[in-house]
């Protein structure tokens, strides 16, 4: 869907993007991650053709990205805003028509979305009369109205209460099921795990990690397991095939977090433990995206 190839963006005093290449597959949800100032917004602006890269190119479905693709992209910026004094209906209509929709078609779709998200009564209200969450909803509708093939959402859930965040999340997933590719930029790692198929992690203008979420998490497996068992503590024993990270106990029931020694497997640990205690639960602790994020970014620094 989108091929980002060797993008370089130089500002006067710093390089915002340094030779960044990313592939985004059609119909997937792609997470664009990175700490503040990593270059995410610069990259998103380049995909939106708000700014142009100094070198490198972007392909949209195999063809070079040009102005004609604008109507096929929907963009919800992180810092969002609407005209405060303008009526909601008129405003969404204006934004949709700027994306190239005809007046009747746009009106029809706005009505559809307003009904769907229970916003019908807002049509003649002014933005300044709406709460922040309501404004976000209006903006979301304005972003998806022209049924873009590529949807770029920068922190789409901020400002929503949990109920509305859920509604918007489901709408995003539904659009994705209908075929929209989604680029999703966020700091909230739990939503990355929940929503994204693949991610790219930017830090200090460089891409430092990318791939499928599952693969990445597997790659970051580091032999940490969680055991729950009944019996006596085993922390006093010698020659353990693992290192104990933590051990807690509740009424004769123990919780043990260990890192398995190099060369050993989980079966070795089980073999060691079976004669000693009664095992009730074994679980591999795969690092969360949050941990991977922190680990990778702080390593890079």
């Amino acid at each position: 869907m989108i091929s980002i190839r060797n993008i370089v963006k130089q500002y006067a005093n710093h390089r915002a993007l340094d030779n960044v290449s990313i592939e985004i597959e059609k119909g997937k949800v792609f997470g664009l991650l990175g700490p503040n100032g990593a270059g995410k917004t610069s990259l998103i602006r380049i995909i939106n053709q708000i700014t142009a890269p100094d070198s490198g190119e972007i392909l949209f479905n195999g063809e070079k990205l040009t102005q004609k693709h604008i109507s096929r992209i929907g963009y919800l910026p992180e810092e969002r805003g609407l005209y405060k004094k303008m009526e909601i209906g008129e405003q969404v209509l204006y934004l949709a028509r700027l994306k190239g929709l005809g007046k009747e078609e746009a009106t029809r779709r706005i009505k559809y979305w307003f009904t769907k998200l229970e916003m019908e009564s807002w049509w003649n209200k002014k933005v300044e009369d709406l709460s922040k969450g309501m404004q976000q909803k209006v903006q979301f509708v304005a972003t998806v109205l022209h049924e873009p093939e590529l949807l770029i959402l920068d922190e789409p859930f901020t400002g929503f209460d949990p109920v509305n965040a859920e509604i918007v999340k489901n709408e995003i997933l539904e659009l994705n099921r209908k075929g929209a590719t989604i680029i999703f930029s966020t700091h909230r790692m739990e939503s990355v795990e929940e929503l994204c198929d693949s991610i790219a992690l930017l830090n200090l203008s460089h891409k430092i990690l990318d791939g499928k979420v599952k693969t990445i998490r597997n790659n970051f497996r580091n032999g940490i397991y969680l055991f729950e068992f009944e019996g006596n503590s085993i922390s006093g024993n010698n020659n353990l095939p693992f290192t104990i990270l933590s051990e807690t106990n509740h009424d004769n029931s123990w919780q043990l977090k260990v890192r398995i020694n190099e060369g050993s497997r989980v079966n070795d640990v089980l073999q060691y433990m079976l004669p000693l205690v009664t095992i009730t639960k074994v679980e591999e602790v795969v690092p969360t995206m949050n941990e991977i994020f922190i680990q990778t970014v702080s390593k890079a620094i």
């Binding site: 708000i50 992209i73 969002r80 805003g81 700027l98 903006q139």
Partner: peptide, 17 residues
């Protein structure tokens, strides 16, 4: 200034130059 402060400018210039 209004467009810049309210940040709507970013939405609009993703549609027009």
């Amino acid at each position: 200034i209004e467009e810049k402060v309210s940040r709507i400018v970013e939405v609009i210039i993703s549609s027009v130059k």
